[in-house]
Design a protein around this nucleic acid. Structure first.
Lengths: 364, 364
DNA sequence: TTTACTTGCTTAATCGTTTAAGCAAACTTT
DNA sequence: AAAGTTTGCTTAAACGATTAAGCAAGTAAA
């Protein structure tokens, strides 16, 4: 009897509130508190399963919260707790399979821990990258995971992140000079794998269309290329080592330059798949046999490498692993409260995927 | 017992002290106010260029703000103003050129007006899409711009957005039943253009590998295909009209089915580029001449359509225009404060890009 | 029976910014 | 000179959630 009386009483209060809500705003803990005649503090604790709140009250709170369609105000709790549970991600672009896959894996790991991510694109522009950083800092993210634009040389803006005490984790395109965590693949060894493979295909003049030397990963690929040539007693010909922006268009240009040489290469290792595609187009247009006349290897294992004719050999960078590790590194930062942390440099091994563009069938 | 209470108390004081020592507190308007001996309110107004603040004070505030490296706390102002200046974007995936380009244009337009975007991916999964919506609502976005997953049939979750009074704008994959703004292309007319083009190429048996009928845009493409056949006095053969998930893998399967027919088609119009790629692979593998034996047309104008051999004719959806219009539609919502707004359905004309896969050179 | 601890709440301050309201002082107008 | 207006600020109350501190009332231990 008493119970049902209370139930009816509560229902009346509830319906009054719902009427008010139709005209008014979103439900807050205060609304729930009013319905149950308890304090907002008690509601907050009940929703967080605080041990000092009775099971009975908790149940009632959850019930009313559900009925009123309560959604916590993230801004308020973030402001109070000094933590937004948002992680910023900066990539040169999202429409590359590599970055999109990294992002997907970052998201997967972070979502499980209650973090959401904000994705921004720099479009390979330093200016846009700076704007992105400002945006993310403005949004009060708890951390930033980034891969730098091709253009980026000045690191002042990244220093800004560090000076705010916000964890910064770089992947793929990172700078060693900035003393931050980094996740990437072993570019130096990957170059060795490629050169070795081409040597096995009986190639003697191996060219390299590389990225900008100032970018660490491309510099490592170049160093790997040079050292691997030495290792296999092949002469290093400066004509065959070209710096490129690695766009498809530039790949076309640089390939054209190589074909104009008196002494043409019999293999070309391109440090990026998009440029490799451009190179392939030129070779096809000029009716050069691939891989018999010139063998071709790209880098990045973008899906189109297996779509074009002939399919392009490439390096698989294990994007999912990179994404996962980047997210985990961020989470470690959050768990440890110590200010001085040891730096985390994770270098993963990559994998050479051999396709038609460098596979002389007569040999196999 | 008393001793341990005292110990705990001391430990708390100590940790507070350590925190004070280590954590660099961020500058707030209060700090600026203290330096200048004015009220925080005056600082806030000065920073917002309020007319009731003297030019002298404004200058001083800006100076000190700069010196102390002040960054406004977005959470606090968003909480106070009841507006986060964040817009959520939901797409099936980012690693398609169409979506990535739409996103880029949404971002461009919204950034100019002081909004930032949060990108989420549904991976074509309804469950993930619901989680994304929750995430965005939780983050207190001011609006949501979305393209629905293939799987999505139940619209309850999208209703949830509407019931919160948050503007929802759909593009590309939208449902008419939900009474919301929509930006897309004229799928029906696009089908007409394709069929007309194939008829001009002397094709008599035109097949259609379409998307799921339940999805409006794919249904419109199917209707356009059927009506265009009628218009050109071609018989509609049910064998030639196939429903597909439009992945590359499914494109391969459906093309194989078509080739198994006693009476093969002489043209195939595929409602998505990825599936068209699968179809192309099968045709190439079976040494069928494209376009002489079978002509092929895709939909979406993904970059790879011009990379593969032969290049694939496709429909350009004007992704940048779609992105811009979606963003503008959102901005209009924000500017008008009226509750009842007229719906905005924007249908853009698409463009057929003719490439090798459907261009019989003997005709031209 | 006194003392200590536990339970289950409440009170009030706080996060940083915005903004309605208010109030002197200076300046204009009549 | 009295009345009104403008200027340039201040005060204080929000926004919604969290949390340290406190306080009755009940339970357990000495």
């Amino acid at each position: 009897m008493i119970i049902s009386t209370i139930a009816i009483y509560l229902l009346k209060r509830l319906s009054k509130y719902i009427k008010k809500l139709n005209i008014k705003k979103k439900t807050t803990i205060k609304d729930i508190a009013n319905v149950l005649n308890i304090s907002p503090a008690a509601v907050s604790k009940a929703l967080h399963d605080d041990s000092r709140i009775s099971e009975k009250t908790k149940k009632a709170v959850r019930q009313i919260a559900e009925n009123l369609n309560y959604q916590p105000n993230h801004l308020a709790s973030a402001l109070r707790k000094g933590k937004s549970n948002l992680v910023g991600v900066i990539v040169p672009r999202t429409n590359s399979n590599f970055f999109s896959s990294v992002i997907q894996n970052i998201e997967e790991v972070l979502n499980k821990e209650g973090y959401n991510i904000i994705i921004t694109q720099s479009n390979e522009s330093y200016k846009k990258e700076c704007a992105n950083i400002d945006t993310l800092l403005f949004t009060q993210v708890d951390g930033i995971i980034a891969s730098m634009a091709n253009e980026t040389v000045d690191l002042a803006y990244f220093e800004k992140i560090k000076s705010k005490g916000i964890p910064l984790i770089l992947f793929d395109r990172g700078e060693n000079d900035l003393n931050v965590d980094y996740i990437g693949i072993n570019d130096y060894d990957s170059s060795h794998m490629i050169v070795e493979h081409l040597v096995n295909q009986d190639c003697k003049r191996i060219a390299h269309i590389g990225g900008f030397k100032r970018t660490r990963i491309f510099n490592n690929r170049i160093r790997g290329y040079i050292d691997a040539l030495k290792k296999h007693n092949l002469p290093l010909d400066n004509e065959l080592l070209i710096e490129s922006s690695l766009t498809t268009e530039d790949g076309r240009e640089k390939m054209t330059e190589l074909l104009a040489l008196k002494n043409r290469p019999d293999a070309v290792y391109v440090a990026g798949d998009y440029a490799a595609l451009g190179a392939l187009q030129i070779l096809n247009e000029q009716d050069i046999n691939i891989p018999e006349d010139i063998a071709l290897v790209g880098f990045g294992n973008e899906p189109f490498t297996s779509m074009v004719t002939p399919t392009i050999s490439s390096i698989n960078q294990h994007s999912s692993e990179i994404g996962k590790q980047a997210a985990e590194t961020f989470l470690n930062h959050m768990k440890k409260k110590t200010i001085n942390q040891s730096l985390n440099k994770i270098i993963l091994d990559a994998e050479l995927i051999i396709r038609d563009s460098s596979n002389k069938k007569s040999l196999s």
